[in-house]
């Protein structure tokens, strides 16, 4: 066997193994669905004033072992305590649902800057989630989280700390915040040229804060 064929064979085996793992996960893991009350807020700066854009729409699911619901220590939830397995979580925020502090026209400019026609959602896909320290008595915990963030069709790795809050038996809140640069996603910060005024420039850096509610009741269709 040549070296190349050997590599391919090993890769195939790895893929098969991953596929099998995924299959077993899907069989007994639970799927938590997005719930109303979720919110996301982006905060930025400009040469005239700070701005924000917010949305109450977060679409997505969180798949994890069923023990997640009851084990507040999370010790039996391997996907959240080890790096070998990880929860399956993907969220999407429709760009059109983001409403800015500056009104409709700025919303439209934001949509154009994010190329909404081709990429309607901002997407975050969790790749790793690992418990940081110990959960408290109420089961609230923090996780070092790594994922892929896709804005305007361009994907960048994203690392952040996500906090878990157990709201009641059936609902959970994941929250966190991270800083991004528009230019990392190929977005030119809006800088309109308005006659009779000095140029308004928007700062490249944006802080994103989110609160994602998930629950056990019937998932979104």
């Amino acid at each position: 066997m040549t070296m190349k064929a050997h590599v391919i064979s090993r890769t195939t085996t790895a893929i098969l193994a991953m596929a099998l793992t995924t299959a077993t996960q899907a069989a007994d893991w639970i799927k938590l669905a997005s719930k109303p009350g979720s919110k996301v807020r982006m905060e930025g700066t400009s040469s005239i004033h700070d701005w924000y854009a917010e949305s109450a729409i977060i679409r997505g699911t969180f798949e994890v072992e069923p023990e997640f619901l009851t084990d507040k220590t999370l010790q039996s939830v391997k996907s959240l305590t080890t790096r070998e397995t990880n929860p399956k979580a993907e969220i999407a925020i429709p760009v059109r649902s983001l409403k800015s502090s500056s009104g409709q026209k700025m919303d439209e400019i934001m949509q154009e800057a994010m190329n909404m026609k081709e990429h309607r959602d901002i997407v975050f896909k969790v790749k790793e989630m690992a418990l940081q320290g110990e959960p408290d008595a109420a089961g609230n915990a923090r996780f070092e989280t790594v994922g892929d963030l896709t804005v305007a069709g361009k994907t960048q790795p994203c690392k952040l700390v996500v906090a878990l809050q157990r709201l009641d038996g059936e609902r959970f809140k994941f929250s966190g915040e991270t800083k991004l640069k528009m230019t990392d996603f190929g977005i030119t910060p809006p800088s309109p040229n308005i006659p009779g005024m000095s140029r308004i420039t928007t700062g490249d850096e944006v802080t994103v804060k989110f609160e994602w509610l998930v629950g056990t009741a019937a998932p979104a269709k």
């Binding site: 026209k105 700025m106 919303d107 439209e108 400019i109 949509q111 154009e112 800057a113 030119t188 910060p189 809006p190 800088s191 309109p192 040229n193 140029r199 420039t201």
Partner: peptide, 8 residues
């Protein structure tokens, strides 16, 4: 920076 041409 140069002016952007976003119209919305």
């Amino acid at each position: 920076p140069p002016a952007t041409s976003y119209k919305g």
